[in-house]
Design a protein around this nucleic acid. Sequence first.
RNA 1: GGCCCGGUGGGAGAGAGGCUAUCCAGAGGAUUGCAAAUCCUUGUACACCAGUUCGAAUCUGGUCCGGGCCUCCA
Length: 469
Amino acid sequence: MDLTLYNTYSGQKEIFVPVDAEHIRMYVCGPTVYNYAHIGNARPVVVFDTLARLLRKLFPKVTYVRNITDIDDKIISAASEQGKKINFITTRYTNQFHADMAELNDNGPDIEPHATDHITEMIKMVECLIEKNFAYVKEGHVLFSVKKMKDYGKLSSHSPDELIAGARIEVSSYKNSPADFVLWKPSSSEQPGWHSPWGRGRPGWHLECSAMSEKHLGETFDIHGGGQDLIFPHHENEIAQSVCAHSGAPFVNYWMHNGYLTVDGEKMSKSLGNFYTVRQLLDEGWDGETIRLALLKSHYRQPLNFSLRGLQDAKSELDRFYRVLRGHSLAEIINFSSESQHSTIEATLKNDLNTPGAIHQLHGEASRLFRLSNNDQSTLKLKNQFFKDASLLGILQRDPEDWFKGNNKKSNDKIDMVFVEDTIALRNAARARGDFIEADRLRDILSAKNIMLEDNVDGTVWKVGEGQK
RNA sequence: GGCCCGGUGGGAGAGAGGCUAUCCAGAGGAUUGCAAAUCCUUGUACACCAGUUCGAAUCUGGUCCGGGCCUCCA
């Protein structure tokens, strides 16, 4: 079965035909680093990480580029509000972003270019656009002349005429036409800036992605991803810049956009203030894998209504999955080398990254394994396959016992393992002699400490109960 | 105003012309010293109105409702 992807540019699902089947190239718009990443920022990270995992399975080489935007007016204002240097802000939130996304099992990109490391490339691209008469200089600004670009607006289904007619804001004096956008703008003495042929200034927002994708992936590459809100104007303008600078060479073959995340049915946005940061959820004790699964439970193009109940559901599903693996350590499961079976999960994901369908398949596998309910070598092989399938989604990467005992949680109070094990031993001794009153008393003692016991055929296992998440 | 998406059972959420989605929650049963876990069974789903079709939740047209973009935003 072929890999099919929904292409925003054509508005339909298409069979994926790479530029070079030996080397897939993908660019995804990364964060502007001036604040903690919220759960909506995490969605494209998780979605495209999952896509990257699939691509790496299907093709011999994948280069995944995700940028860091470290020069932007929002960063400038955040720095001045907090009385900190720009560099302090960008370094701090870049590190925070990395730490948070790692918790979500994001493998990260192969190349993570920073905008400020590519000013030279950006200036060169602007010069090229001026030279080819797609851009003009006015009042210290360099602007892209939208009407010079034949297909401008195709990605977002807008015509330049509509955009001009719909312009809601007052047109700046330096624009020849309301739809024109800034490639380079002047900086005041207190704003960060770089020397350029047009004076000291800084790049417009869209320029970095055009310049950095060209440098790291070439003029034409396979996939460009990001959130739906980037379709216009960001990606539209990227296309304009790159196609015109490259004398009409195709820029991106497949445009992929993830849907919005809503909270209580409303778009989550910084301006509305109705957002959860990833850090906040982690600190509350939600596991990164739980957050990741909650994000993958709906298809990437669908809107996702984020809720605590959704997280709780994801947690319950992961409990079920880890219960399948329990009885073997993660190392045993990983190291059990076996021929990779035909994976139905892979086939499901090849249908436009159908992660909910893949999760469904995982539940099917889980049910089959539960019915076997023995822990010999043959089930170890099945667990190995189950683990591999789950790994495509980037979940089930922890040791099962650690998952249930909360060992991966930083925020948990230390559990006294010796006390727990001793109490279980005492209780089992009581059970063996038929003293169920004592057995239940010991169970209650542990229960009060949020330790839940399960008596299985192989013995008694325990887990941290709900409330600790 | 223009342009996009959507509306599926208590909740989440796939599917996509005829075949049980699945998970969570609920009910009944099996199992268990008791539990938990697991297994089995189970409930009223496809916004509305027409049309196409032997057959539509799935296609077409319209209606209503919701969200988004057109301005910084994943």
